[in-house]
Write a protein that binds this DNA or RNA. Sequence first.
DNA 1: GTCTATAGTACGATAGAC
DNA 2: GTCTATCGTACTATAGAC
Lengths: 199, 199
Amino acid sequence: MFIQDDNISKTKQAILNSALILFVDKGYFNTSIPDLVKHSGVSTGSIYHGFGDKESIAETLMQSLLTQVENEQKQILATYASSWDRFYGLCKWMFYTAETYPQIMQFILNARHKEFLPDALPICSAKPFVILRDVISQGMEQGNLKKMDVMVAAASSYGGVLRIIQLGLDGLLEHPLNHYLDDITKTCWSSISVDKQTD
Amino acid sequence: MFIQDDNISKTKQAILNSALILFVDKGYFNTSIPDLVKHSGVSTGSIYHGFGDKESIAETLMQSLLTQVENEQKQILATYASSWDRFYGLCKWMFYTAETYPQIMQFILNARHKEFLPDALPICSAKPFVILRDVISQGMEQGNLKKMDVMVAAASSYGGVLRIIQLGLDGLLEHPLNHYLDDITKTCWSSISVDKQTD
DNA sequence: GTCTATAGTACGATAGAC
DNA sequence: GTCTATCGTACTATAGAC
């Protein structure tokens, strides 16, 4: 179970969990309501009673996952104070999630939201991505990072990390994702840090 | 006109060009054959005569764009020899393409190929992405780059570059993409280069 | 709130004239 | 090789009993 939220009825949770699995596996448009009925065990009537239409299932799913991610991130921020510790903590959590719940990562990173949620903003303007950038801004203000455009710094640091997560999800890495965590975070961080790291 | 290939009839080229625009704008599944008819001015019959089915349009489009990209890359490799020059040249070309033909970049980077081309390999195993990685391998063999896992090095270097291209395509950057080229390439390269760069 | 049955529609694909 | 007209289907969404 990916979605567990007391504000959402058990029936709706079952639908959302099936939706996550099927949307990631087959894609949103290749997943029909009958597919969801079969996978979730919930009837057509209940699905439409709970969500109104198909698009709203994807919308609720996205919202729910982003909120979940945001909460996990806040816990990490509350645990660590320095910008490196926060950066590493956030990356470690992303690696862990990608390995343990690949569907969640795939859906957030990969899903062509614009196709089925035409009014949604690009995923990079969602809160969890803003939190990632804020950690970089913080490091720059405190003088631990080179002064540069925040977008450039954020892209340099998280770009490599997210890229290797994607490679892992696509099954193109030799080792399990976790094997790369320390190397990629150190390498990416070194590109924006004022401390020149030695190997 | 994005697709210009003497091996492909004018009619098919018109369809492919409309397909690129509509697939990127509305998405593959939100683009119907009637949409393609209206946009391209080619009739349903000719579309099916030329391609057999809808999926094959996307397949041909992808193939055609990847070949085009590969050829441009080969020209760059033929012009420059050192790994930095090649890296910079390839990145510069990607920036230029993303600004001049955003649809091409969007389709290659963004399209959820797995959804409509179920048999396609992940995009990162396509030739143009292999060429990007090869430049990194070359730099490592010649001793210009730190010895590290090639995937880690490739992700660190291109990850940031591709990320900022994505941010640009999503309209989240203050300045035009080109403004960031030198900063991001230098920053990303510094993370894997043996020469510590100073600002 | 949950279910089954079905309405309505828009699509992918084909047939067949020119 | 190009076109118009149309078929068959599978889907989203609704109606209405329990």
